[in-house]
Design a protein around this nucleic acid. Structure first.
Lengths: 266, 266
DNA sequence: ATATTTATTCCATATTACGGACTAAATTTG
DNA sequence: CAAATTTAGTCCGTAATATGGAATAAATAT
């Protein structure tokens, strides 16, 4: 007997149930990030039976939407990446975010950055100018920095699956420990753990001596965060106390960005 | 009687036929680009019956993989964009392309650029250095230029659906005709038409007086091109004749890039 | 205003998707 | 390095879901 109790989650589908299940599986693989997802986890997290997930994955493999690594983990393919590029995203609608970033600069008086993950780097897309006379122009718009060596990047690391963040950190340490600045491999891992638990990061002397930053990733239900917002100021202007005071504004900003993205180019 | 003759295209699926159909539909919507796709076209291009496409789209709408505009066209959603960001793509593997770009510089002696579409802009990602002593460093890596005012951008415009390219051109002309440089709205449209038919663009004085460029988009079966390669040199060094001689090398380069992308991070 | 193309809904049919039970492979544990 | 456990993949009879023709409605072109 087929009880099909899993229909409950996907019930609203108008008559193509497998399509809904396929979407759930794709979402779940994306959520797993670059490390890939295991069949058992996909089955658990979607509530679908293992044979069903397996059968759907088999077809997705034929369509090259999914590939399986040597460790049998399932990953999305470059084809999915390209299909995604045809869909509306921030990159093509940056100006829609400008007022939100600038408003955070206005209310805080400090320099605010918007950045986007690109592989193991953070790509700085936009800078809001605050009114406070001592300004930190540490990063220029369109500059690219390793995630391990900037505030936004560390916020992004904290929003991805632990194994993936760890592997990025390990790789960066191997490539060039110098980019960690004051941090060590372990202190950075701890810092990232703090971000993972608290949803924000605060640190000093990351991109530049004497500069502090408060950063938070834009929440993303469908996978690791890929956008982050950083408030930057000279260290005396941004002690932990003030960072905590600013946090609600920062959270509001990231939430507004989330909302704008969801409604892009309807 | 249901003849299901459409099974032929999708036959290799291992037992989840609707999944294969869903993939075909997603691919087809992506191929239509930002303008969206109409139900009838999706039905024609996938070989699936209209009711089937409609039913699958209805579910994709519930899952927010697809939205329908006022003109009833179907478009991918920001959610699909985000899922795509979790899949391997050039952005996260740029260094894999460096040798290919540099090799084209080596063989041509000229400056070679790799760029990526980002909305209505072309984002310059990488520059290969040639040995010819008069160098054109018109663009810096990570610089962003409107597609209408750079060689790569024009190659990209020529690889997207005509209506979409036209609308980008029209919008850019409205925003600031100055960015067209020597071109007019109509001459640019003709230039793009040439690119569409011939697969490459050659022009002078686009980014800078006295500089010529030969550009081509990296072919993309799943939608409009999003990467382009440009060979750039002072005009006397790159007349149309020489551009035609270089074209095979350029084509080879873009094909190799295509191949590298397809095999990213298996 | 009319014709034509396109989008959507309905429905009886049979094809496809279903998950339990089993086997195989890998990973963890003692 | 075995034994135990977790994970992956396969089979199959059943029944639920996907199917496309036909009809209707809506939009677009003429």
């Amino acid at each position: 007997m087929h009880d099909r109790s899993d229909r409950s989650d996907l019930g609203s589908a108008g008559g193509a149930l497998v399509v809904a299940k396929t979407c759930a599986i794709l979402r779940e693989i994306a959520r797993a990030g670059g490390g890939g997802a295991r069949l058992a986890d996909l089955s658990r997290n979607t509530g679908l039976s293992r044979p069903s997930v397996h059968r759907i994955l088999a077809t997705l493999k034929v369509e090259d939407f999914v590939r399986q690594s040597a460790s049998r983990r399932y990953r999305l393919t470059p084809q999915v990446h390209e299909i995604g590029l045809s869909a509306p995203g921030v990159a093509g609608n940056l100006e829609a975010l400008r007022p939100v970033i600038q408003q955070l600069s206005d209310v805080s008086g400090d320099t605010v950055y918007l950045s986007m993950r690109s592989g193991t780097n953070a790509h700085y897309l936009m800078r809001g100018e605050g009114s406070y006379p001592i300004r930190t122009y540490v990063v220029k718009p369109f500059q690219v920095l390793p995630m391990v060596s900037c505030h936004s990047g560390r916020a992004l690391l904290g929003s991805m699956p632990r194994p993936e963040a760890d592997s990025i950190i390990a790789r960066a340490w191997f490539d060039d420990p110098g980019q960690f600045k004051a941090a060590t491999r372990d202190s950075l891992r701890e810092e990232i753990e703090f971000v993972r638990e608290n949803g924000y990061g605060w640190a000093r002397d990351v991109t530049f001596e004497g500069v502090a930053g408060l950063a938070r990733a834009v929440p993303n239900a469908n996978g690791p965060g890929y956008l982050a917002v950083t408030i930057s100021a000279v260290s005396p202007r941004l002690p932990l106390d003030r960072a905590r005071d600013l946090l609600p504004k920062l959270i509001e900003t990231t939430s507004r960005i989330r909302q704008i993205i969801d409604n892009l180019q309807i």
